[in-house]
Design a binder for these strands. Structure first.
Lengths: 129, 129
DNA sequence: GCCCAAAATAGAATAATTCTAATTCTTATT
DNA sequence: AATAAGAATTAGAATTATTCTATTTTGGGC
């Protein structure tokens, strides 16, 4: 059941490319609806998630982030945890075949070192030793 | 630097197939060393993780779990969140090629419906309508 | 045996999320 | 238009997971 807030929240999640946390969605929503409560954001995110309208992404040690359901995967920086979209072919067929049982979906994160963290490492390598 | 506790904790994580949470590791460790503090468990898990001796697994809405570093992937039940090991070939080569940049590793979870949850669904389907 | 650094401890603090109970909003019905 | 029922929203408390802080303990080299 789409209400005023759930519509707004869905729109925010779908249009932003930035994988927002519940807190960030709350802040963004506050700018439009200053009276909204954080619990409402959590309630709606959970309802949308249960209804399969949004995706939840979880990286160790970080609050959950929310994303649209368009099929895509993610790059995660090993160092700073930054999350970036990446478009790979759908691997469901391949994986089902490999694992030998039906799967509903999958969650794939490629771990890499983002540009900033690479530079930072190099700078440290120069000053440290 | 391996201390009494970090050795025990590493052993627990490596020998258990059950992807324990910090809390569960704490409980298990307590049985052997009743004086240990929860903070010590977290400290050691973090140190072991930073040293690359253990893996951290994160599923949305659940506390982080810990696992050995032997290369393998996971099945996650969509319904109850249960985590099971699965052995697939190493996809690093394939994925690097597909994404066109070097990756350090990857984290792959196959979402499925475990036996119990399938049964539960069928039972509900019979009584509900 | 003493010293030092690292590790461990207890408990407070913080962060993320859920829960509770009261209130407000919708909608269908009279 | 008034009303009742049910869902959504709210504020704030409660809970959970984790980190931080300050103090104490431990263990290896001198």
């Amino acid at each position: 059941m789409m209400t005023k807030y759930s519509k707004e929240i869905l729109r925010l999640v779908e249009t932003s490319r930035s994988h927002m946390t519940a807190e960030q969605i709350f802040e963004a929503l506050r700018r439009i609806c200053p009276r909204v409560a954080l619990a409402t954001v959590y309630n709606n995110l959970n309802r949308l998630w249960e209804a399969g309208r949004i995706r939840k992404i979880s990286v160790e040690g970080m609050p959950d982030r929310y994303d649209c359901t368009r099929r895509h995967d993610h790059l995660v920086c090993k160092e700073c945890g930054k999350l970036v979209d990446v478009n790979l072919d759908d691997l469901t067929q391949l994986l089902e075949q490999k694992v030998g049982m039906p799967i509903l979906s999958y969650d794939l994160k490629l771990v890499y070192l983002c540009q900033e963290c690479q530079s930072k490492r190099q700078a440290e390598a120069l000053t440290e030793p």
